[in-house]
Amino acid sequence: MSEQLLRVEDLSVHFALPTGFLGGHRPLKAVDGVSFTLAAGETLGIVGESGCGKSTLGRAILRLIEPTAGRVVWQGQPLGALAADALRGLRRDLQIVFQDPLAALDPRMTIGEIIAEPLVTHEPALGRAAIRARVEAIMAETGLLPQLINRYPHEFSGGQCQRVGIARAMILQPKLIVCDEPVSALDVSIQAQIVNLLMRLQASHGLAMLFISHDLAVVRHVSHRILVLYLGRLMELAECHDLLAAPRHPYTQALISAVPIPDPARERRKRRIVLTGELPSPLDPPSGCVFRTRCPHARPICAEQIPRIEPVRFGHSIACHRWQELPATPPAALA
């Protein structure tokens, strides 16, 4: 777990939204100044609510969206400096799994063709038999019967389609997989199968994973570290255990307390920190700290200055003006 695979430095993605008249534009700051590192074999969970920019962040790292500012350094090599062809070559190490399992598969292709596509693209010299053998091997590994190779996606259930998506991502033995809400579209019982599969694959192949989700419980289960995102900004980043046992950011604390626990006694006991209001529009984010409009601890300074990202201790960083004054209470949910 020591080799640093990916370094994201101050990454920003701003979209220019046309504002009607005269070709005027207004920036939508989907991701703003996010930094982190990822080691080989590590899972970093990225958690946040809708519109927090977590999917954009994942795509910007893979350069499916061009970042506006900042750098993505892959194995010491800045991706931004690469020519299109070199980047295409690198893609064999960087793969993605999507949220909607059926939509991510071309409905006109068979399962075998879909899974083989990255292989055919990166190893064009491979013969038919070799391709088929590789596809069948990865199908078996992802829990799909190799006999289903000539079936079409619409004949599969959501969970099976997600296995196909994972098989496609895995066939080139990548070093990093970005999982963008890979289980949110699935039923609870199927969700657990897919989570187990991803964790098993990660352990056996030494994959690094970026696990993007709105569901803190799932993220907690799969991640070594968790990054909390709000309106495109990093709020808190810590080891999984530290983040849950001693969250320092008021947003993280509220997020943890809002997750319903499948245990009636605990649900009755726990004190929820109910945030007032809702997510501000990312088109018009609050000045200073973006969370201040909903923060129970906001002070005038929070409206004036953007909080810097400061280390709480090694491996735990936070963007909050007042974290040192605020109590580091373990959330009631976990008591």
Binding site: R59, L62, L64, L87, R88, G89, R91, R92, L94, Q95, I96, F98, Q99, D100, A103, A104, L105, D106, P107, E117, P118, T121, H122, G165, R168
Partner: peptide
């Protein structure tokens, strides 16, 4: 649709 993005992510050329 997502499968087009998946093809991009796999490094497939535009013409393909």
């Amino acid at each position: 649709r997502d499968f087009i993005e998946a093809a991009h992510a796999a490094g497939v050329r535009k013409r393909k």
